[in-house]
Amino acid sequence: MIFLFYLLSTIMIVCALLVVFSKNPINNVIYLILCFIAMAGHYILLNAQFLAVVHIIVYTGAIMVLFLFVIMLLNLNKAIIIRKSTVTRVSAVITGGIFFLVLLAATRQTFEIHAKYPFNSEIGLVSGIGKTLFGEFLLPFEISSILFISAMVGAMMFGKKDA
């Protein structure tokens, strides 16, 4: 099983790097979708089946399609030549590397990691999530609908021609 973990991880990191470095927006989207599918695999490994399904539906099914839709709409499907200067790009890579190292050091410093809790394979299922969601987190869940409405209205406002 540990082999599965490493396989998925490799796919994810390679795809993520390709998202950053490939120039064609369409390719970017495709790589990102691949990355997200691998992530759904990770969710299944972690016994979070509900999340895996929702992830596929929401991200790959809706959000990424939205991206593709916008790219097609704006006719951006050819390699875009705009580029940042070499200095910026090198410094971006260096900053990312430093960030990675600092975060690693942080995890090493802050706590000792061990999984000593009794394992329960039921919590990731729909019933487990649902009980928590509609019990403890009912109010935030309902409020998030307001967030969605306001986001919808905002997007429409921006999209209007004479806004």
Partner: peptide, 18 residues
Amino acid sequence: VALFSIGMMGVLFRRNTI
């Protein structure tokens, strides 16, 4: 952590808003 760093590097690296 690796994924997060890659994503952040991309934010700094790219000029394409999408």
